[in-house]
């Protein structure tokens, strides 16, 4: 096994499991449509809230994906093979996360224009929304991977992952939504984007190592 063959395999497996990603996107759309139905379909409510709604829905659907990110690898013994491959485990984890991130966030971005229209997000704020998603979601994946790796040996780990991980998602949600809101109000939003980037970089430094520790502890 080399890093390259590992990467290729991850792409291949993700491609063959595309229905999972599809489900996550559907879930995203459903959650978003709950808000107008459940609270208020008036543009006066939806336009200011749209950033928050889109972000909360995105976080939930990402959580749904991230929870099972190592499940299959654990069951079929691939995690053991990662450990004995002589390759650097944090790097393997990072590669896998990059593939998963690309595979999940790209489809989400593709439905964003449609949904932001449906929620009356002002068109000037749309690119800010895209920027927050691009800059903020890496840290969601990186942090979520720690929880997923810790609970991989449990049969019913989904609830636990949510409980563990959601508090850590709060700052990301806060800064992302603040950026969108600031742009709607015409305030400077660049600082919020910088914060999102900083958080992604910080989790990039910490998470692969912590996830590697967790993977190693889970495989026994």
């Amino acid at each position: 096994m080399t890093y390259f063959s590992f990467l290729m395999t991850e792409f291949c497996v993700l491609w063959r499991r595309k229905h999972d990603v599809f489900n996550a996107v559907l879930f995203f759309i459903i959650v978003v449509s709950l808000f107008p139905l459940g609270i208020d379909p008036a543009p006066e409510f939806l336009a200011p809230a749209s950033g928050g709604i889109l972000w909360c829905a995105a976080v939930l659907s990402i959580l749904m994906v991230i929870e099972g990110i190592f499940k299959e690898d654990y069951r079929d013994g691939s995690l053991e093979q990662w450990l004995v491959s002589g390759l650097y485990l944090p790097l393997l984890v990072l590669l896998k996360l990059i593939v998963q991130w690309a595979g999940v966030v790209m489809p989400l971005l593709m439905v964003m224009p449609l949904l932001s229209q449906m929620l009356y997000l002002p068109s000037g704020s749309f690119w800010v929304l895209i920027m927050t998603v691009v800059l903020g979601t890496p840290s969601l994946f990186l942090i979520g991977a720690i929880g997923a790796a810790l609970t991989v040996s449990l049969r019913q780990g989904a609830m636990l992952v949510m409980l563990l991980i959601l508090p850590f998602y709060l700052p990301v949600i806060i800064f992302a939504v603040s950026a969108i809101r600031a742009s709607q109000e015409g305030a400077p939003y660049f600082g919020f984007l910088a914060m999102l980037l900083a958080m992604s970089l910080l989790s990039l430094v910490i998470s692969p190592f912590m996830t590697a520790v967790a993977v190693k502890a889970s495989v026994n």
């Binding site: 096994m1 080399t2 390259f4 063959s5 590992f6 290729m8 395999t9 291949c12 497996v13 063959r16 499991r17 299959e72 069951r75 079929d76 013994g77 691939s78 053991e80 093979q81």
Partner: peptide, 21 residues
């Protein structure tokens, strides 16, 4: 090991190339 490290979604030849590119 007991769990063989085989990915269900790979074909047989892809599996071999995965471990020995």
């Amino acid at each position: 090991g007991h769990s063989l490290g085989i990915k269900n979604l790979l074909t047989v030849s892809e599996h071999i190339r995965h471990y020995c590119p």
